[in-house]
Computed example of a mutant assay.
Amino acid sequence: MNYFIQEITATETYPVRHIVLRAGKPIESCRFEGDELPSTHHFGYFLDNQLIGLVSLFESENLLLGDQKSFQIRGMAVLDSHQKKGIGNALIQEAEAFCKKQNTTLIWFNARTSAVGFYKKLGYEIVGAEFEIKEVGPHFLMFKKF
């Protein structure tokens, strides 16, 4: 099986985002504010030329973590049938490598509570208490400085 990671368009993220993150909601819910900005980057994981995972990086400061240049991960998704096979790890490694090339040392995101263990294994830390994102569910703010 051949796999590769490459930059993709915001629109190309919608089918996987829809299945994994917005099931049962309109496809329009997969469009995130800032998706089309030149500073936003989307990376897709392809297996045998089929998109099965993705991560999006938005240049965005989080003042709780300082005022340095940072990127926010949004829309991290791997199709259920391909989870627990290292694909999410590979996508996070790609995101971190990209951020280093952009001269930033901070990545942050709002992690679904169910995904916190995955991110902790990759060195990410929780800040603050669990909170609810309307129509999405419980989350924690997580970050990593490198």
Score class of each variant (00 low, 15 high):
Q68F: 06
G88Y: 05
I92Q: 12
A95F: 02
Y45R: 05
I52M: 12
K121G: 11
A111C: 12
M76Q: 01
A95T: 05
G53N: 09
S39Y: 00
I19S: 11
V55F: 02
M76D: 03
A23H: 06
A23W: 03
R112H: 00
T113A: 09
E7G: 04
N62V: 01
A90P: 07
T9S: 13
F109S: 03
S60T: 13
F118P: 07
Q50I: 06
W108E: 04
F46R: 04
V55S: 00
Q72E: 10
S81E: 14
F46L: 01
T13Y: 10
F71A: 01
D67G: 15
K69D: 08
S56W: 10
K121E: 10
Q72P: 03
F71G: 03
F32Q: 01
H41C: 03
W108P: 00
H41S: 05
A115Q: 13
V116Q: 08
G66P: 01
T113V: 14
I92D: 11
K101T: 14
K100H: 14
D67W: 13
P26M: 09
E61W: 14
E7Q: 02
D35S: 13
A23L: 11
V55T: 05
D80E: 14
P38S: 01
E7Y: 03
N49E: 12
S60Y: 13
L54P: 09
N62C: 03
T113P: 14
G53V: 04
K85C: 10
I27Y: 15
C30Q: 01
P26I: 06
L37Q: 12
G53M: 07
F58V: 08
I19Y: 11
Y45K: 02
N89C: 15
A23E: 15
L21F: 05
I92R: 12
T104M: 09
I52D: 11
S56H: 10
Y45H: 03
G66I: 02
K100F: 15
L57M: 00
G53S: 03
A111P: 07
K85T: 08
G53F: 08
G75I: 05
V78Q: 12
H41Y: 13
R112W: 02
R22V: 04
S60E: 15
L37R: 08
V20W: 06
S70V: 02
G86P: 03
C99S: 03
K84N: 14
F109G: 00
L64P: 12
K84Q: 15
K120P: 12
D80V: 10
I52F: 08
L51E: 09
V78M: 08
P38W: 01
Q50K: 09
S70K: 10
Y119H: 03
E96N: 09
Y45E: 08
Y14G: 05
V116M: 07
G117K: 12
T13F: 09
F46I: 00
Q6V: 14
A23R: 09
R112F: 12
D48W: 04
